[in-house]
Lab assay of single mutants.
Amino acid sequence: QEEEKEIKRLAKKFNASEEEARRAWKKAGGDPETAEKILKKKG
């Protein structure tokens, strides 16, 4: 599933848990760029 792959990639890229990545993904409405910004800010 595309979403799961994206979440795993985000978690790995930002050294975050999949739970954090999933939360960022949901907050971003499934937009990878926005999710990255959220995780970057958090990191």
Results as ranks from 00 to 15, higher is better:
43 G>T: 13
25 W>Q: 04
12 K>V: 10
38 I>H: 03
23 R>H: 12
19 E>W: 07
3 E>G: 09
33 E>L: 13
18 E>R: 04
40 K>M: 15
20 E>R: 04
5 K>L: 14
30 G>I: 01
24 A>I: 04
8 K>Y: 05
1 Q>M: 14
32 P>E: 05
23 R>F: 09
23 R>E: 15
18 E>T: 08
13 K>Q: 08
8 K>S: 08
21 A>Y: 01
26 K>Q: 15
19 E>C: 09
31 D>G: 01
42 K>G: 13
17 S>A: 05
43 G>M: 15
33 E>C: 13
2 E>S: 10
24 A>H: 01
28 A>W: 00
37 K>S: 10
31 D>P: 00
15 N>R: 08
29 G>H: 09
24 A>M: 02
6 E>G: 05
5 K>S: 12
19 E>Q: 09
9 R>L: 07
38 I>K: 02
4 E>R: 07
14 F>T: 04
40 K>Q: 15
27 K>Y: 08
31 D>F: 04
25 W>K: 03
41 K>D: 14
3 E>A: 11
39 L>I: 05
42 K>H: 12
42 K>C: 14
29 G>W: 05
15 N>P: 01
43 G>L: 15
12 K>R: 10
25 W>R: 03
11 A>V: 07
42 K>P: 08
32 P>A: 12
12 K>W: 07
12 K>F: 07
34 T>M: 15
4 E>G: 06
37 K>M: 11
27 K>T: 12
33 E>M: 11
11 A>T: 04
43 G>P: 11
38 I>G: 02
11 A>P: 00
26 K>D: 15
4 E>C: 10
10 L>G: 00
24 A>D: 01
34 T>D: 06
41 K>F: 13
39 L>H: 00
3 E>S: 10
27 K>D: 15
41 K>M: 15
1 Q>H: 11
31 D>R: 05
25 W>N: 03
8 K>E: 08
32 P>G: 05
39 L>A: 01
21 A>F: 02
15 N>C: 13
17 S>R: 04
3 E>Y: 12
5 K>F: 13
43 G>E: 12
6 E>V: 09
5 K>D: 14
37 K>D: 10
32 P>S: 11
16 A>R: 08
12 K>S: 09
31 D>Q: 05
11 A>N: 01
35 A>M: 05
39 L>K: 00
9 R>W: 04
9 R>Y: 06
39 L>T: 01
2 E>R: 09
10 L>M: 04
31 D>H: 08
14 F>Q: 02
9 R>A: 09
43 G>R: 14
26 K>L: 14
11 A>D: 01
15 N>W: 06
20 E>S: 07
31 D>K: 06
30 G>D: 02
17 S>Q: 03
36 E>A: 11
34 T>A: 13
42 K>Q: 13
2 E>C: 11
18 E>K: 05
32 P>Q: 08
28 A>P: 00
38 I>V: 04
43 G>A: 13
43 G>F: 15
29 G>L: 09
19 E>I: 06
42 K>Y: 12
10 L>C: 01
11 A>W: 01
38 I>L: 09
3 E>I: 11
25 W>P: 02
33 E>K: 12
6 E>K: 05
34 T>L: 15
11 A>S: 06
42 K>E: 14
20 E>L: 07
13 K>R: 08
29 G>P: 02
22 R>C: 09
22 R>D: 04
35 A>W: 02
5 K>E: 14
33 E>R: 10
36 E>Y: 03
24 A>V: 05
19 E>L: 06
30 G>F: 04
30 G>N: 04
34 T>H: 08
11 A>L: 04
2 E>P: 09
36 E>Q: 05
36 E>P: 01
33 E>Y: 11
4 E>N: 08
14 F>P: 00
38 I>A: 03
17 S>I: 03
7 I>A: 02
41 K>Q: 14
7 I>R: 01
6 E>M: 13
24 A>T: 02
41 K>R: 13
31 D>A: 04
26 K>V: 14
15 N>F: 08
17 S>T: 13
3 E>T: 10
34 T>Y: 11
21 A>G: 02
32 P>Y: 12
20 E>W: 04
1 Q>K: 11
24 A>N: 01
21 A>T: 07
20 E>T: 06
35 A>T: 05
35 A>V: 07
19 E>S: 07
33 E>Q: 11
22 R>V: 03
32 P>W: 14
9 R>M: 06
40 K>A: 15
37 K>G: 09
34 T>E: 13
31 D>T: 03
23 R>I: 11
41 K>N: 14
7 I>K: 01
20 E>A: 09
36 E>W: 03
13 K>N: 05
33 E>N: 10
17 S>M: 04
31 D>V: 08
42 K>N: 12
43 G>N: 13
8 K>T: 08
6 E>R: 06
13 K>D: 06
43 G>C: 14
36 E>G: 08
43 G>D: 11
7 I>T: 02
13 K>M: 14
14 F>S: 02
33 E>P: 07
25 W>H: 08
5 K>C: 11
15 N>V: 04
34 T>N: 07
24 A>F: 01
12 K>D: 10
11 A>E: 04
28 A>Q: 00
38 I>T: 02
39 L>M: 10
4 E>F: 06
7 I>E: 01
28 A>E: 00
10 L>D: 00
1 Q>S: 13
21 A>V: 14
38 I>S: 02
9 R>P: 01
17 S>K: 04
6 E>I: 12
11 A>Q: 09
2 E>V: 09
36 E>K: 05
16 A>Q: 07
18 E>V: 12
14 F>E: 02
8 K>D: 06
17 S>V: 03
11 A>F: 01
20 E>Q: 07
10 L>I: 07
24 A>R: 01
29 G>R: 09
16 A>M: 12
1 Q>F: 14
27 K>C: 15
18 E>G: 03
20 E>H: 04
35 A>F: 04
16 A>W: 04
7 I>W: 05
30 G>T: 02
28 A>K: 00
9 R>Q: 06
26 K>T: 12
31 D>S: 07
39 L>Q: 00
27 K>V: 10
21 A>Q: 00
